[in-house]
């Protein structure tokens, strides 16, 4: 925590959890797709569903998917300016965290499904990606690596990071089942450049990278 967590962030109102955090959830979903979406389907749960319209949560999520930052005045008019097709759904009763959104994005080739919660003061937790339970906050620079569960792939990737001067702050691996689809989430202390080379390490492996632009010490 630093002084700008208290006197800040600079953001579009009215709510750090229902507006600023929602933008960040949209930002991460956009990164996970890795390209400009052709279509977005956004489901708001719990408190997001109940008070989301009044808090502009719907606009904030969509603006995040469009790549806006939480202090972008364009958030207010994103419904008119959004370049792709979008749809909202509302589920008031759920067992999820009260401020949860499910974001499904697709382009011509692929799709991604992300569920995350805005946990207060503009902070988020991504909880599910393509049916796999994950957990990361976007407080760090984050590599999200979609791969197949095979022996040795984790070692190859972490070796590459080490050789390129990257220290891993946190790392977790999730898989659907043995030898099946898996996702590796690596949060790093440094910015990561040239990470696309990791895609040559395994057939069908895909790497996306979320850079925490709000980290003032990075």
């Amino acid at each position: 925590m630093d002084v700008f967590d208290i006197i800040g962030p600079i953001m579009i109102g009215p709510s750090s959890s229902h507006t600023a955090g929602a933008v960040k959830l949209g930002n991460v979903a956009r990164i996970l797709l890795g390209s400009e979406p052709a279509k977005a389907t956004i489901t708001l749960y719990g408190s997001f569903a109940k008070t989301g319209k009044g808090h502009g949560t719907d606009k904030a999520l969509l603006a995040g998917i469009c790549g806006y930052t939480m202090d972008d005045a364009g958030i207010k008019t994103v419904f008119e300016d959004c370049p792709f097709e979008y749809e909202f759904k509302y589920e008031e009763n759920s067992d999820y965290h009260p401020n949860t959104a499910l974001i499904e994005l697709s382009d011509a080739e692929m799709s991604v499904k992300m569920r995350g919660a805005s946990v207060g003061a503009g902070r988020i937790e991504v909880q599910e990606v393509d049916g796999m339970e994950v957990s990361f906050s976007g407080d760090f620079n984050t590599l999200i690596i979609f791969h197949s569960d095979r022996r040795g792939i984790i070692a190859r990737i972490t070796t590459w990071l080490s050789e390129n001067g990257i220290n891993i702050a946190f790392m977790r691996v999730f898989r659907l089942s043995k030898d099946d689809k898996a996702v590796m989430v690596i949060e790093t202390d440094q910015k990561v450049a040239g990470y696309k080379i990791l895609e040559s390490f395994q057939d069908g492996l895909r790497v996306e990278y979320y850079e925490n632009t709000h980290a003032r010490n990075a």
Binding site: M11, I12, G13, S16, D71, A73
Partner: peptide, 11 residues
């Protein structure tokens, strides 16, 4: 009104 503010400490 969804304008730009500084959360201090909250919005």
């Amino acid at each position: 009104n969804m304008g730009k503010i500084v959360a201090a400490p909250t919005a």
